[in-house]
Simulated scan of single mutants.
Amino acid sequence: MKRDMELGRKILLVLEEKEDFSTPIIPEVPEHTKIEVAYHIKLLHQAGLVEAINWSSDSDNEWEATTLTSIGHDFLDAARNETIWKKSKAMVLENGAAMTFEMMKIALTETLKAQLLGSPS
């Protein structure tokens, strides 16, 4: 399964709205299967963006998220704005870099920095 940065961002947005962080969930994300969402929760957990529980067995892959980490909140705060998100994705792709959560953190930081300093990005 391919990593989908848009799906990862959508999961973070849903988790941010959770009131109860003691109950793990696999959020419903339109146009994505439960398996895709669970897999991306695993990836977000491995990237340090969410806390999650691995309920997987030999026959299925079931990761459930509980909450964002502090790093996850920072990432989402930078990625929340659609314009910033799109510019950051374009920056990564234009430079031929791998579309990873770490590269997106760097691109988001640079895009926000350019916006704050008033220079074009």
Rank of each mutant, 00 (worst) to 15 (best):
E51P: 08
L7T: 05
L68Y: 02
G72Q: 03
L68P: 03
A90T: 05
I35S: 14
H32Q: 02
I84M: 08
L112S: 10
S121Q: 14
K113I: 09
L116I: 12
P120F: 15
L13T: 12
L49P: 08
R3T: 07
H73I: 13
D20P: 01
N81M: 06
T69I: 05
G8N: 09
H45K: 06
G8A: 00
L76M: 03
I41G: 01
K34I: 09
V50H: 00
I41Y: 05
I71T: 15
G48A: 07
M104C: 03
A65R: 00
S56H: 08
A38W: 08
S59Q: 13
N95C: 04
D60H: 10
E82D: 14
V29T: 02
P24I: 00
S121R: 09
F21L: 10
V29I: 14
Q115L: 15
K34A: 11
S121F: 12
R9M: 00
L44Q: 02
L108M: 04
G48K: 07
R80H: 11
W55P: 13
E62R: 14
S88V: 05
L112M: 12
I84N: 02
K86D: 12
T111E: 10
K105A: 12
F101V: 10
E62N: 13
I53Q: 13
I41S: 03
P24D: 06
N54Q: 03
L7S: 08
K42P: 04
I35M: 13
K105Q: 15
S22P: 09
E94S: 14
L108S: 01
S121G: 14
T23E: 01
S56K: 09
W55C: 15
D60E: 09
G72F: 08
L13G: 15
L116M: 05
S59Y: 15
K2C: 13
I41N: 04
W55D: 15
P120W: 12
L112F: 11
Q115G: 14
V37I: 03
A65N: 09
L116E: 11
Q115A: 15
S121K: 06
S22L: 08
E36R: 03
D4Y: 06
V37F: 04
T23I: 11
Q46L: 12
K2Y: 08
L44I: 01
A65C: 02
H73F: 14
T33I: 01
E17T: 10
Y39G: 13
F75A: 01
L116D: 10
W55Y: 15
V50R: 02
R80N: 11
D20E: 00
